[in-house]
Design a protein around this nucleic acid. Structure first.
Lengths: 340, 340
DNA sequence: TCATGTTGTGAGACCGTTCCCACATCAAAT
DNA sequence: ATTTGATGTGGGAACGGTCTCACAACATGA
């Protein structure tokens, strides 16, 4: 049963104003009235109607998380899912509820959904269409982008230092003596993949062992399947090139490529070293475990929410962009020791 | 800017009743009025306030998904995340928004959150505390359980036929000639793990090659780490037992065990065959790829939502429980051919 | 001519809260 | 005795929609 404040007031023999005062604990209330009200609330298991409250307070304590995806599921995605998890956890701590939407095409529609529900703010994950952003901006609701690709002015954007990460990857492989490295570079329309490749390439040039165009393959998507099939297609070229290492711009591609190599009985890392980027949970679980550049997804999610909350309560927000430093994680696939 | 229906009415030179009629497309409206209103709406980019609408219609078009987790993240969980994905997709199709909460301890609190937000219904994933269920039942909101463990009366419960799956696993391994099988059985307090073991054990007894108590190990949790460490601890016993196959009650445990075996240079499947249960995405990606019993998570999620929607609109719902048939997926780890 | 039906409109109650304001006590201070 | 302030209470206007109802205009048919 759903009771109203009016019903509580009736049974406690007071006015609804008094009940409201007791619930919100502001203003004066006599001990007597307070206890009676509390008792009735307990008895009826009364749960205040958050909608009505939101109507008058103009604050829902709801936020929306909008995740763009092309075809595949996304909540279960090892990367975005992790960010989502961090958002859910930190939001719950501050008494927010979270609407989650995974979108494919009709993005304006799903942003409208959240907007009509009057969310206090939005977190946008991955690259969204420009018109979605405009739609949100136009409505004047605070929002934060995480790992997006659009560089819109004045938008708070949370990203990893991907270029720096690319450099770290190159540094790791060259320091192990690798000179002839094959690169699997995910969709270059995607900011992260583009910058990771850029950083990697620059470092190699700096080392005076620049990447030849023929040492870079471009899987059509940043998936395991594409990593696998790209490696398969490039197999003849790969062998003849005598590459001693592979760098992929994300873990899924790296793991896909690794799977194919293992099926060809290539020994990793003895014959070929493999490196990924992201450090998804499964990177440590594969055999051999995957050396990678860790992107701190939990921290990105947590910060995204924290910043959004500040925007919502109109506190001063210092920087307009937030960058996270990636970290080298050495594992078996480049000769590191096994999982502890 | 957030405009109200009143503002639209003013600018269109009609009453708010007329605007409401145009928006909801019910009742009579002159073409003239209709067009004028539509034009103003377009101009101001008016978005109706779903809260106000919900107040009067007593219907939010929001549902809540409550996922229980012990310690680890859950949206990114390869099993629950997948179910969640399916729910999100099918909910969006019917214009519902979805609140997602991943809970650890204080479950009553988070169910109260959803209830106060007046969700139209709830989907509960994994085993939740009894008092949470009572709390929800008491409030009278429709709900569906997915893969839970509680057998509450009259509750719609969506589960896989785990016992049958256990039998299929045993059938597969014995048909390959394995007689001496080692079992890694996840937490027996969890319905799924319990039934999977039960089905497996029954089949083996039926084959007159019953499982010895010493051939079953119980990892403390259904995680990769526990699979790995349990295998590590049982390593000496395992070798001396001359087991030719391993069955784990879920994929994560199986993959963890497999990782350890590979590190001991055990050849899979030649020396030891390994089987899991669930068919998480990564099962196909590991090397060797993992033979498993597929639980159709997408279908479970989709059905959960569909049933909930029926409950919400008070349509007749036939059965009170819904069971999904698991399917044997043969891959490399038991001698199947490699990933296609 | 008058009942009857169709089309179109706006006023206003209501959904369940919050919060402002008016007002009533009663004690302490002038 | 009267002002002042603290304490306590309830009435009622919002918040932004939906929906019922009354009513107006006009056509139709008996």
């Amino acid at each position: 049963m759903e009771y109203t404040i009016k019903e509580i007031a009736l049974r406690a023999g007071v006015s609804k104003s008094t009940v409201s005062r007791v619930i919100s604990d502001k203003g004066y209330t006599s001990l007597e009235a307070r206890e009676k009200v509390l008792q009735v609330i307990q008895e009826l298991k009364y749960k205040p109607n958050a909608l009505a409250r939101a109507m008058v307070s103009q604050r829902t304590y709801n936020i929306g998380v909008l995740i763009y995806r092309r075809h595949h599921p996304i909540a279960s995605h090892p990367f975005y899912g992790k960010i989502l998890d961090a958002i859910l956890t930190s939001a719950a701590r501050l008494n927010y509820s979270v609407f989650v939407t995974t979108d494919h095409e009709m993005s304006v529609r799903s942003s409208d959904f959240m907007l009509e529900k009057r969310v206090d703010g939005l977190i946008l994950i991955s690259r969204l269409q420009q018109n979605v952003i405009e739609n949100i901006q136009n409505f004047g609701v605070p929002y934060i982008m995480v790992n997006g690709s659009t560089d819109v002015d004045g938008v708070i954007h949370i990203v990893g230092r991907d270029e720096e990460g690319g450099r770290k990857a190159a540094d790791h492989l060259t320091s192990l003596g690798h000179r002839n490295i094959y690169v699997l570079a995910g969709p270059q329309t995607h900011r992260s993949h583009h910058l990771r490749l850029k950083g990697f390439r620059h470092y190699m040039e700096h080392q005076e062992t620049p990447l030849a165009a023929s040492s870079i393959a471009y899987p059509g998507a940043s998936t395991f399947e594409e990593g696998y099939s790209t490696m398969q297609k490039q197999w003849d070229h790969f062998r003849s090139g005598k590459y001693s290492a592979i760098f992929a711009t994300n873990d899924m591609i790296a793991l896909g490529a690794m799977k194919f190599l293992l099926e060809q009985s290539v020994r990793i890392p003895e014959q070929v070293a493999v490196m990924g980027f992201d450090d998804i949970d499964f990177a440590a679980m594969f055999s051999p475990s995957l050396t990678t550049i860790r992107v701190n997804m939990e921290e990105m999610g947590t910060q995204a929410f924290t910043m959004l909350d500040r925007l919502i309560r109109k506190e001063q927000v210092a920087e307009s962009n937030m960058e996270f430093e990636p970290e080298l994680i050495v594992r078996q696939s480049t000769g590191g020791k096994h999982l502890g």
